[in-house]
Design a protein around this nucleic acid. Structure first.
Lengths: 361, 361
DNA sequence: GCCCCGCTTGCATTAGGATGCAATACTAAT
DNA sequence: ATTAGTATTGCATCCTAATGCAAGCGGGGC
């Protein structure tokens, strides 16, 4: 009789012939265990249970111990959905990524995931197949009440404005706007290319080929633009640009295209990312029997890990992913805590990784 | 006066001197627009609004048109959190991945994301640094009321049991249990290794070296075990096993270790993944001046894209990621719809990719 | 013109936890 | 023992959308 009060409901049910094993986290009615169930069993109020799960709340040790014991017994876990509804904080952040084939993104994702995890924030992943899917994605983003968004995909002005209107903090990754202030983490793509181009030029390269990224890649365009502008300043003429799509195959094919221009084979090839540069190196060696860097220098951009492999030893610009991810997370979280913070852009310089795929001056 | 009824509340507010631009998706009080706001403005009930956003609900065309127009004006988006609370469906699925450094996982993630997207399911990403973090992760998983889980990380029996008890559908990816029925998608690792080993043996290789994965990698152990068993059956002796950690560097270092055994340099190296195999190839060529595959054959496992690059042309077993991801998604979704479905294991065979990194019989 | 039926719509309630405020318990001091 | 003062606890309400049930509306048939 001692505990009939506390366990009354459960005891009453167990009179039936059902022999179900008790299911952790479920009531005997097959519903999820809620704070009410815990409260009932522990003989306290629901609010007490709620407070026990909130760090820093006013609860006595005795109460907390009692509640926690029951909670554990019943397998109770607070319902994050219900909590989000009332606190207006979902503890979820959306990450929007478009071109996943880029070897660079997985690394970014791990870093973001790791950092957000430290603040107990969860990652809702949105991957785009086409940039045109952004609107559809954004609609989902609003619906899920995420606390903030990190976008490594291109957003239009209007789309960015929606974020402001809805008060959802946004941090762009490697994108930004001139005429519209938005928080962003960037690696200075043009500057990186200039470093490469100047060094290539100083080493005496004359005939430049550029393998661009796909036309809709903002980062790719910046890189190509940076290289072209710098070459122009150096009064280099006859630069050929061939379009790639960031893939190994496209890099390899692009190299062939550059070689086809009879008599004008490039002695320096500047690629919009590392994977295409690797494709170029392989094309030079295997398709054309050329030596890299003696016959042709090849440079990339990203600092993707395969570039460091002994077969390539790629000369490239390394984007400081860890630092950039860390910055993106802290910048976003600051704005989640304090939405009034003005937009901020942090720009990092890439670091020249001198490999052996290019002769540099 | 015509619309004073409908817009009464808004009109009353606008009497103030505040000149805020109307913020899409926000009321003039700075709160999110809810179905009540839409209902009030449209002069209908909240339930009507709710029904307008539910496909197939009983609503007249007139009503839907009216509501939708207002919803658009106000920038209303249904609150997925509130919806989840009442429908007990979050439309979120957790994906647990442990070793992201593996080049194979990004590809998997893209595929999963793509497929789930088709069912309007969102991906909550959990990455593990250490297998020991699983319990922490699982606690989060329960809290977020995800509709199901795809785990490419190892789970203990007890952990799997929690899923059953809580009624959360689970599909393991490349893991499974003998004595505990759990739904899983697998690539038959042992069988794949046997194909490789038999072919290597038939080609006359005598001295085998194995580069294993990290000890806590289930898949890696299966691969190593498969290779060892097959070699044993073929009565090959003196097989050396060196431990790697799936990284390029560890593959390269492992190759050195295998070579150190004076006079017994291997003529075939079997690696637990592609990246280590690539490391071995580079080590053989660059550190030891050996020719691959003339002096030493190297094989991997995964079918990661860099293996196909011209410098490596890796002979490996290709896991059919697309098919496996598709299977994982449909198997999970079936169980979300119908939790009573019994566990099912689908096992796929890897496909031999004959590159040029090994002489095969 | 009246009644029945079916389609729409609204009302009231539900999901599960957080929180302001009031009530109560407990501690220390007199 | 009594009182002031603080630390706990409970009550009632809120967050936002979904849904069973009942009422309302309109049309067709007699």
């Amino acid at each position: 009789m001692a505990n009939s009060n506390v366990n009354g409901r459960r005891a009453a049910q167990s009179g039936k012939t059902e022999v179900k094993t008790p299911r952790l986290g479920m009531t005997e009615h097959g519903k999820r265990v809620t704070s009410y169930d815990v409260a009932l069993t522990a003989g306290v109020s629901q609010s007490a249970v709620s407070r026990c799960f909130k760090p820093g709340a006013s609860v006595s040790k005795k109460m907390r111990a009692k509640v926690m014991r029951v909670a554990e017994q019943l397998g109770y876990q607070p319902n994050a959905i219900a909590r989000s509804l009332i606190t207006r904080r979902s503890n979820m952040v959306a990450v929007i990524i478009n071109n996943f084939t880029n070897l660079y993104y997985p690394e970014l994702l791990v870093q973001l995931s790791r950092r957000f995890d430290e603040s107990n924030i969860h990652l809702l992943l949105f991957t785009l197949e086409h940039e045109s899917d952004v609107d559809k994605i954004l609609s989902q983003v609003w619906q899920y009440q995420v606390d903030g968004v990190v976008s490594a995909a291109f957003l239009s002005h209007q789309q960015v404005e929606f974020f402001e209107q809805r008060g959802v903090p946004l941090v762009l990754y490697n994108r930004s706007f001139q005429d519209h202030p938005v928080s962003a983490i960037c690696c200075n793509q043009e500057a990186g290319e200039r470093v490469l181009v100047k060094k290539l030029h100083a080493a005496g390269h004359k005939r430049y080929g550029i393998v661009s990224g796909p036309p809709d890649s903002v980062v790719g365009n910046q890189r190509t633009k940076g290289a072209l502008q710098c070459l122009k300043q150096l009064r280099v003429r006859g630069v050929r640009v061939v379009e790639g799509d960031y893939s190994y195959e496209s890099g390899r094919a692009a190299f062939s295209q550059l070689m086809e221009d009879k008599g004008k084979a490039p002695d320096a090839v500047i690629c919009a990312n590392d994977v295409m540069a690797i494709g170029c190196i392989d094309a030079a060696r295997h398709d054309y029997g050329l030596r890299v860097p003696e016959d042709v220098s090849v440079v990339g951009f990203d600092g993707a890990s395969p570039g460091a492999w002994a077969s390539y030893r790629l000369t490239t610009i390394d984007q400081p992913v860890e630092i950039m991810a860390e910055a993106a997370v802290s910048m976003l979280m600051e704005r989640v805590e304090n939405p009034e913070l003005p937009p901020e852009v942090r720009s990092y310089s890439g670091v020249l990784l001198e490999g052996e795929s290019a002769r540099l001056g």
